[in-house]
Structures are given as structure tokens and as C-alpha cells.
Write a protein that binds this DNA or RNA. Structure first.
Lengths: 208, 208
DNA sequence: GGTCATTGTGTTCATTTGAACTTGCGAGCA
DNA sequence: TGCTCGCAAGTTCAAATGAACACAATGACC
């Protein structure tokens, strides 16, 4: 898709953005590669834009936008507890944010992505422990075996969604916790797509 | 710390960065607030910089750096395998990147941060499974009980660092794996600070 | 009353910066 | 052979942009 040289230019732009926090100007790119003219740079930028690796704001300074900042990084709100409906999610219930790049999250564009802080060890056998932050997506197509956040008795719990004999139930991944068979409807708030765990150095984590 | 007006300016800059991907110029800030002169903007920028809410690259266009992009988000390289010395880490051995915000990672500024993809189930009892990405920091102060990446026989392995009777050894968190007592020196490449797991929906993950 | 930080206006300047035009070279292709 | 495409040099322009200088109003604090 890109020639080697074109990739070099793109990577230089991205690394400058990461390291200095600002986009390089055409002349800075020129000098880095030792070009005697800016025209070369202009051509690379034009090509990269045409191929979709770059967005430019015409006539503005340092106005290059690479997928690094535009597509990849998502700011995900962490909720302590999810109330009844997704509609009632407000800024108030947000505990904090995690920023992750889209690829490491597997997030699709359509669904709303959010995060929950895990409390308790009911999913310990799925290697999800107390304090972990699970990233979920509000999607419709729940599949058998997915780990989901569901609303049971006004509380949000994380369980595995299991379909058996045509009827779904929620399975805790810990023999000490009971499975939940929904009385009427099952309200799925999100499907787990990713997990983030802080590991404070120096504090030994208990083993199960 | 900041006056209301100063906060307004800072928030405008940050929201432009998030939405458009580029930093506003002084004139854009000026027009947004309806100032008749750029000098007002210059004063705000000066104040914000003095108070530490902003970094500026003098004489460069759109070169404002706010904590949004500078402090919070770190781009962490993922290595498949770490060769002998940290010095030999090059772009070539990088498998990809994860972007995380500094807070969720607990990363300190001094140490180099990097990531490793976990292979095998030797840390299963610490709830680290095959395919997980562990974020590590290259630091000197390894403490008893930390999970570390260490170099053993030319291979990088993830183990728990345990100090016993004044002598350190590496403990696998899986009864099926042996502990490693270093013959001579123990080469710690990094201390685990965080973990990221992708959970592909629809594919049921095996339990231990 | 005096000092200081904050918030402004009005104006001017030098630099930075994106962009356009022309020319040249070599590789691959019909 | 002629054609396109990637890569690059050389030159020039106009717009975008940060920065400086002088002046002024307001409110807090002593």
C-alpha cells in the first residue's frame, strides 16, 4: 500500500507527534530527511493523504492528523455502577477515564464503549479479579460464552452469558457463586471486549 | 489555581485538540472568545504556561501542548521477545503499540515503559493468561513479590520475584512450572505495572 | 493612596509555513 | 518508443502565525 519511503515519512511524523507533542512542519520533515526542497515533502503528504493515511487541514500550520491521534485512541469512561438504563448514564456517575487504542480494545465503531470496575471475585476462574477494569461494549449480538455486564435486581454484575437448551442464563466463574437464571428478561448492558489491570509494584497480590 | 477565564481558555484548547486533532492558533482562540486583540490570548497562554498547565514551543505554529496529550497518553511498544540487553531494543523488534493513559498504568516518569505479550500459562495463578499484554517498567527497585520479566537462558520469562533468606528466586504462579533459582546473577528487565487483555467476543476463553 | 494581578484594546513586525510552478531522473509497462 | 509513477531539486509567493510594545479599566490587598 505504501512505499518504503512513504512509510518512513509517515513514521517520522507520528514519532514526532509522540515525542514532542506537536506535528512537524513541512520544513522540519524536509530537514530530517535531508531534502533540498520542500516539494518532496509536499508530494509525500499529498500521496499519504490520497491513500488515506493522513488528514490535512489546508493552509493551516502543523495541521497533519495521522491515525495515531485520530482513530486509535479512545477515551473510555469508567462507571462505578451502571444504573437501570444506559440512557441514564451521565457524567456524574463517571469514576474516571481510561485511554486505550482501538486495536487493543477490539472496539467496533457502532457500539458505545464504556468501562466498569470489577468488585468481588465472582469471575476469578475467568482470571478477572477484584479491582480490574473491564471494557465493555453496548452491543446487541451477545454470543454464547461472552462475558457480559447484566442488570440483576438493580445491580450490575459481570457474568458469563451461557445459552443452554435455548434459554440463556448467567454463569459465575467461581464455584462459590451461584448461577443466575433470569426470571423474566435478561438485561445485558455490555459485552466485555477488553480488560485492564493495575499492578501496583511492591504490593503483593493475593493468589486464589 | 486557575481563574475561571483561564480555565475556559485551557478547556477550549483541549476541546479543539480532541475534536479537530490540531491545536488552535492564537487567532482562532481570539475569535472564539471574541477578543479584539491577540494580546489577550498571549497573556492567557503566558499565564497558563507559568502555572504549568501548558507547554509552548516558542515561535512555532500551533505548538501548544496540554496535559491531555502530553501527560496522560503514553504510547507503549510491545515486544515479542526482549533480547539480551535493554540497549538492543530497536524499532525492529516491536510488535505493535498500546496507548494507555499514564494513570491507568501507574507509570513513573523515570523508567522506560514497555510491553510484552505473554506466552504460556506459567502465571495462571496470578491471573495472567496466554495472550495477555503486560506493561512493564525498566526500574531498579524491584521489591519482594513483584512480577517481573527476567532473562533466563536467553529467553525472557514472566515470573514473580521472591526474596527468601536474603536470596532472590523466580517463582512461577503455576504448580506445573518449576521455580527458577538463578545460578549467578538475576537479570531483571522490567517490573509489571499493568495488564491489558483483549477479549474477542464470541470466542469462549478456556478456564484453567 | 499605592501596588499588583487580571483582563482587555490597538497596532505593527518578523518569521514560520503551506503551497504552487518548473525541471530532471529512473523504473516498470504496454 | 511513449506513458505513467515515484522521487527529488530549485525557486517564489502569499497567508498564517507568534510575539512585542503602548495604553487602560477593574478589583483585591495592604
Amino acid at each position: 500500500m505504501l512505499t518504503e519511503r512513504q512509510r518512513d515519512v509517515l513514521e517520522f511524523i507520528q514519532s514526532e507527534q509522540r515525542e514532542k507533542g506537536i506535528t512537524p512542519s513541512t520544513r522540519e520533515i524536509q530537514h530530517h530527511f535531508g531534502f533540498a526542497s520542500q516539494t518532496s515533502v509536499m508530494q509525500y503528504l499529498g500521496t499519504l493523504e490520497r491513500k488515506g493515511f493522513l488528514d490535512r487541514h489546508a493552509r493551516k500550520a502543523r495541521a497533519l492528523i495521522t491515525p495515531v491521534q485520530k482513530v486509535r485512541i479512545t477515551d473510555v469512561p469508567i462507571y462505578g455502577q451502571i444504573p437501570a438504563g444506559m440512557a441514564t448514564l451521565t457524567e456524574q456517575t463517571i469514576e474516571g477515564h481510561v485511554s486505550l487504542d482501538t486495536r487493543s480494545v477490539n472496539a467496533s465503531k457502532n457500539g458505545k464503549t464504556f468501562a466498569l470496575r470489577v468488585r468481588g471475585d465472582s469471575m476469578i476462574d475467568a482470571h478477572i479479579v477484584d479491582g480490574d477494569i473491564v471494557i465493555l461494549e453496548d452491543r446487541k449480538d451477545v454470543q454464547n460464552g461472552d462475558i457480559v455486564a447484566a442488570l440483576i435486581d438493580g445491580e450490575t454484575t459481570l457474568k458469563r452469558y451461557v445459552m443452554e437448551h435455548g434459554r440463556p442464563y448467567l454463569k459465575a466463574e467461581n464455584p462459590l457463586f451461584p448461577n443466575l437464571v433470569p426470571a423474566r428478561e435478561l438485561r445485558i448492558q455490555g459485552v466485555m471486549v477488553s480488560l485492564v489491570r493495575k499492578q501496583p509494584p511492591g504490593s503483593r497480590r493475593k493468589r486464589s
